[in-house]
């Protein structure tokens, strides 16, 4: 099985594969933030911190214990979720911009702590060996993306998803209707962080070298850009945002050093003309149904 999959993976141009895996990891990270910011409406500026927890947990489990990669992925996700609950209890009482700065503060604190721990090898970082698994990493990324999208699509339509949307629209009204806002917010935070942890673990093994400084404020902003640019709360939007921003450096490459200049302008222009993101308001279910209907309807001759 492993050999067969490896052969399939080898058929694809490694450069294209590299980009596809980057997109996949970006999608997982962005979907996680989408649960927190898009569904529950809580602005987090520290998503990269949870990614770093997953990345270092995954790296250390592979290095020290040689843990099978599938289990490792789950452990990394749960570790990130665990931390998010610990942090969520006190901070999720804060509202709006105060929550944003608290998450940013937490991310900065975590980065400094990682820079001072021996187990993370301080600023020297960790070289991560290949994952312990016969199944190639890109397959894990693909499976994770599919699971992440499916889970989120189901979640959105569930009682839980509707409660989160109610909190996003009006927290007080939601509470008046009997929604325990704090509990739901913490759950959303934990789920989003679980995604971040899984994404971080995949990232660590894919890039093969991690360093606490990689997961700073700018990384959090990158992920936030994916979510908002694609369309807050919309799964197809987030997928599009993650794909575009991950490949942006590639197709803006011909601009050489002017690339970041253009990137800044694109962000502004997109927000000015599509403030709700490229696919803001487009739901995954509707999109799938639409395609499905088109396929099944016999074309009129």
């Amino acid at each position: 099985m492993g050999n067969f999959l490896q052969n399939v993976v080898n058929q694809i141009d490694p450069y294209v594969m590299q980009i596809l895996v980057n997109i996949g990891i970006g999608i997982i990270l962005a979907l996680g933030l989408n649960v927190i910011t898009g569904l529950a409406g809580q602005l987090s500026l520290g998503h990269a911190a949870f990614m770093s927890i997953g990345a270092f947990t995954g790296a250390i489990l592979t290095i020290k214990l040689g843990m099978p990669f599938g289990v490792n992925l789950l452990c990394s996700g749960f570790m990130a979720a665990l931390f998010s609950v610990l942090i969520g209890f006190p901070t999720l009482r804060l509202s709006g911009d105060y929550l944003a700065i608290a998450t940013l503060g937490f991310a900065e604190i975590l980065k400094v702590v990682f820079l001072n721990l021996d187990i993370t090898n301080r600023a020297l970082g960790l070289s991560v060996p290949p994952p312990y698994s016969s199944i190639p990493l890109p397959v894990y990324v693909l499976i994770s993306v599919v699971l992440a999208v499916t889970a989120l699509a189901l979640m959105q339509e569930s009682r839980f998803g509707r409660a989160l949307k109610a909190i996003r629209e009006d927290e007080i009204a939601a509470e008046a209707m009997g929604v325990n806002a704090t509990r739901y917010k913490i759950q959303a935070f934990a789920i989003g962080s679980f995604y971040a942890g899984v994404g971080g673990c995949l990232y660590a093994h894919f890039i093969a070298y991690i360093n606490p400084s990689d997961f700073g404020f700018l990384k959090s902003i990158d992920i936030l850009n994916m979510v908002v640019l694609g369309g807050l709360g919309s799964i197809p939007g987030v997928i599009l945002g993650a794909s575009l921003l991950t490949t942006a450096p590639e197709f803006l490459g011909f601009m050489k050093q002017y690339r970041m200049l253009v990137y800044g302008i694109i962000l502004i222009i997109l927000m000015l003309f599509r403030p709700n993101g490229l696919l803001g308001g487009v739901s995954f279910k509707e999109m799938v149904l639409k395609i499905f209907r088109k396929r099944t309807q016999p074309s009129r001759a």
Binding site: L43, V228, G264, L267, N276
Partner: peptide
């Protein structure tokens, strides 16, 4: 959030 992202664009 849109305004925030636009601000980030200006900053970049």
């Amino acid at each position: 959030l849109s305004a925030l992202i636009s601000a980030i664009g200006v900053s970049i």
